[in-house]
Write a protein that binds this DNA or RNA. Structure first.
Lengths: 340, 340
DNA sequence: TTGAAAGCGTTACCAT
DNA sequence: ATGGTAACGCTTTCAA
């Protein structure tokens, strides 16, 4: 297997020659260092311009022991959430002239370790571990030496490792308050499976918003589905519509559940949002494309990506490792299912 | 702004010392070269193992003028299509020990050029231009010198640059045939805006499938919407349901249109798929989450990514630049909207 | 079969 | 203010 011959590139030596100075002087001029006269700096800059010189980053990396690249390892590259976070990370990072090297671990620990080692061999300056699935927390740090790490979408309490996750509690408050502000009085809650941290947080947000508004938390209005899937939302919707008195709103712990609920409601002739307003959680891509586009509490995915990127850059530049769990505020996306 | 001190890494010199050989011998042993005795090779391998040595890829790149990294520039990182293709590219590439460096151009030519130059400075071995939006074709190649390029999701006829796109014509045949095989006889077609190449191809596929089956192409059953948006599908659906005789199937040039059509049909009490079967095109993430999950002709996004990755690796390794437009076959995703 | 030395393109130290 | 030289970690002649 033969490899292609790479192109001949213009080096700093060429620039120096054209400018009539030494290699080291050219380097200083190009890097805006002091101790080089304005005149020569101009000549070097002109020469560089003329030759269309751009420094070889590989050589720079070797010398500076800094690659200006970070690795991003994701659980689930096809996941619908991943891409927005990726976008945020890239945006935050590119403005510092860093690039992101992408790796997919498929949630497999062995593969994750292999990718991590590859990234380390590439001398990356930092790593973002973007975890969609739940992960054995703390594992990866072992291999990382002193390369800073940020957890994204999942969190860890490892010392020196910051995490960026959505503020589920606050988001649930926001969704509930939205319904309250719309004048809805009896607000049901359809939760996901118990024993997840999110379901706990979202239910507590719902409860908190109600109580803050001086309304009682009524367990009869709270439904728990066994799984997140739409079909289980449908089941919850059936229970809901058989209540003696139909609530005038329902807040669901996920969009998938909300869509199932809307299905059940539609089936029995109840109108959304006139008879009952529906609000979901997550802002899944399909939520806008329902017959009744779904109002939902959106996960701040891009903002999370941006924050993770910034935290990482900060850790790289300033050696600041703070083991904080950052909860980024959700935001509300108003659509038809909750009225106007 | 101070930079962190990188960790002390184990180099090949350490390995050589531990094995009691010279640096160059160690290198040869590690790279499975000939002219090194089995005994020393073993000692070197053991030493490397013991020290957990992994070669510094940056130094390797500098020496070999080959980075084992490719750049992927996308128009639209948040796009729902992008992520599957990314996944495919990564999968194809990782098996050759390449990595992908991700860049977002937002469809902006200036930014694209800047990213390209950054990638080139990083000595990447190849580039994939993943274009969701239409692009001024041929532009980027100018700056690329002899670094191989593959276009993905968009195409170019530049010499030496292969392109990978979906086979829209074949996909439309597939969708139409599916309805035919289901025994549907009068199949309407809802097309997107004219003057797009895809709309032409998809309509021709529909026509071809009909004619191959010995059915006439009936212009009265063909509707053209002004835009791709769901609302325009809804309008088409309204026209459709007012035909003297309702067709027993409708094939839509996109999922968004199909969803609009289903809306209109639902409104007038027509049942999908019993009264009329509906098939879409694209396999958008929301299509599975409709009240009546949508049967659709799926774009082979991941396969396209894989192919693009393989073509690029091939071009890098073998200097084979073929300016072919590869049309990857679509596949059918059967859901409820077309019956069972 | 082994090892010394040169070189990849850059930056940084230390002379001048 | 400028330039020679070494060094980053690796691979690759070339000579022994």
């Amino acid at each position: 297997m033969t490899l292609r011959n790479p192109s001949t590139k213009v080096t700093i030596l060429d620039v120096a020659r054209l400018a009539g100075v030494s290699k080291s002087t050219a380097s200083k001029a190009l890097n805006n260092q002091n101790y080089v006269s304005e005149a020569t700096r101009q000549r070097v800059l002109d020469a560089a311009q003329k030759l269309n010189f751009s420094p070889n980053k590989v050589a720079q990396s070797l010398k500076q022991k800094r690659s200006y690249a970070i690795g991003l390892i994701t659980d689930d590259l096809e996941g619908l959430f991943t891409t927005s976070m990726l976008h945020g990370v890239d945006e935050a990072i590119i403005s510092h002239n860093f690039n992101v090297i992408l790796c997919n671990s498929f949630g497999d620990a062995a593969r994750e370790k292999a990718r991590l080692e590859m990234l380390l061999a590439r001398q990356i300056d930092g790593v973002i571990l973007l975890g969609y699935k739940v992960r054995e927390r703390g594992l990866p740090a072992l291999v990382l030496g002193d390369v800073p790490v940020v957890y994204l979408y999942q969190y860890t309490v490892l010392p020196g490792v910051p995490s960026v996750i959505p503020d589920d509690f606050g988001g649930a408050i926001m969704g509930t308050q939205h319904l309250l502000e719309l004048g809805r009085r009896r607000i049901a809650f359809v939760n996901g499976p118990p024993h997840y941290e999110v379901t706990h947080l979202r239910r507590e947000g719902y409860r908190h918003a109600l109580e803050t508004a001086g309304k009682p938390y009524d367990p009869n209005l709270v439904f728990t589905s066994r799984k997140w899937h739409q079909n289980f939302g449908y089941d919850a919707g059936k229970q809901l519509r058989e209540l003696a008195e139909l609530p005038d709103a329902v807040f669901c712990a996920s969009d998938s559940l909300a869509i199932g609920v809307m299905d059940a409601l539609h089936e029995s002739g109840h109108r959304v949002p006139d008879d009952i307003a529906v609000v979901g959680f997550d802002n899944r891509p399909y939520s806008a494309h329902q017959r009744r586009p779904l109002t939902t509490v959106a996960l701040p995915l891009k903002a999370m990506g941006v924050l993770a990127g910034e935290l990482l850059i900060d850790a790289i530049m300033n050696e600041t490792h703070e083991s904080v769990v950052h909860r980024v505020p959700c935001y509300l996306v108003r659509r038809e299912s909750s009225g106007t």
